[in-house]
Design a protein around this nucleic acid. Structure first.
Lengths: 241, 241
DNA sequence: ATCTGTGAAGCCGTTCACAGCG
DNA sequence: CGCTGTGAACGGCTTCACAGAT
């Protein structure tokens, strides 16, 4: 039989590669920038440059959504914005609750990119009584005890966890039990969730450590040059900073 | 710049895959957790579970650093912590400057994970005179005009950009000109930098959009309801499936 | 016997290069 | 022509399954 599955869907195959999905928001942002500048049509080369990828990758990515370009011309900006938005599910509003209202939670609550791009923050919750009641970006902070009510009453579908590490798993369990199936986690812990729940993690410290690795390499490799002194025999004191 | 001259396949090959590098910080955090609980030895299966990966991947990753385990037994926690720390370059301190002291910058400045794991915040800079002089986490905010001096005087090697989008590229150009070759960017723009400069991006809005994509799919696939707003030009019949 | 370290296979994503269409 | 859309080649990452060390 043929190697492919029986039904090779014509266009807009729903099996869009993860790597492509992760880039669609970048393309979308670049397209919005072009829109603001009044650009009506864009070539794969131009859009790719604006998005920081190469044009072959961009064309391949867009081909997973369908044939939305015109050969010999390029892509119509407005049309492509709509198609990508629809594919990402941004033509509807997603209701978000932010749990943990420290500096990070405040930064998230005030982030303009939320409201403007299909996300509506409908709840700010915290366990600290000193913070509860405070008004942030026009919204009053509620006590975490009301978490389940808030999720149910306002149909929250995405939970943003910005609590300290120790509280994160507990909060996660509660939001999942309340029916949330998408979690964005800023706490530096690996959350465990049942199948069917999506968790994405944003971790500053990990990003910095990756940078440090490359920075060190630029400076001549770990411990100086070449092999250095590794090996089980050279068990130096653990330098726990 | 000297080209790659990696010939040693012995152990600790310096050509560690990017995907592995990105996971090492996760392993390191899991190991620190085990250390705190007084665990001395761990199997690949246990550590993998704690880190949220499968054991084959963990073993393959660690094999790129060297043979630091004992067959039939597992890995010595303290020794592995040291080896990973060394590989990531965390046995030395990296000096960080944070540019942009809004809520996000404050959250970053107060983030405990910095100081404790090989990073030292040596500068907080902002363009807003109302903020300059304010003390945050025991450090006074300085004016962005002093950016180049701060970088040079304190040997800053990593710049964290937490400014509004419009200011990010300008700040980036300045830190690069001042000799910084590692940038962590929180502003929602694609920064362009010369070769040899590393940029990593953290983007909340992108993460949320990826979640929205999957959430939508769970709810029955994109376009599962009527059709949205009008598509500008050609509006072919969407999908048959 | 147990658990690591690793060749080998399979999978996925990227890049190439050109066919196909405007 | 110019530029998109895409098969095919390529390379990297993940997974498997077992050889090999203790």
């Amino acid at each position: 039989m043929t190697p492919r599955q029986n039904r090779n869907r014509d266009r807009a195959d729903r099996g869009i590669p993860e790597a492509t999905v992760a880039r669609l928001p970048v393309y979308l942002r670049a397209l919005h920038g072009l829109q603001d500048r009044g650009v009506a049509t864009v070539s794969s080369e131009e859009l790719a440059t604006a998005a920081g990828v190469n044009s072959a990758k961009l064309r391949k990515d867009l081909s997973h959504l369908g044939s939305y370009g015109t050969r010999g011309v390029g892509y119509e900006v407005e049309y492509l914005v709509y198609q990508i938005s629809r594919e990402l599910g941004l033509t509807q509003d997603w209701v978000v609750a932010i749990i943990g209202v420290g500096n990070l939670g405040r930064a998230l609550a005030g982030y303009g990119g939320f409201a403007s791009r299909g996300f509506r923050v409908a709840g700010l919750l915290d366990a600290d009584d000193a913070i509860v009641g405070e008004e942030i970006s026009g919204m009053a902070v509620e006590h975490i005890d009301r978490l389940e009510e808030v999720i149910a009453e306002r149909s929250v579908s995405i939970a943003v966890i910005a609590t300290p590490a120790g509280a994160a798993q507990g909060v996660c369990d509660r939001v999942v039990a309340a029916g949330v199936t998408s979690v964005l986690n800023f706490a530096p812990v690996v959350l465990s969730v049942p199948d069917g729940v999506d968790v994405r993690k944003v971790d500053l410290s990990i990003e910095l450590q990756i940078l440090a690795f490359h920075e060190q390499r630029k400076a001549g490799g770990p411990d100086g040059y070449g092999d250095g002194p590794p090996g089980p025999a050279h068990y130096v004191e653990a330098v726990d900073a």
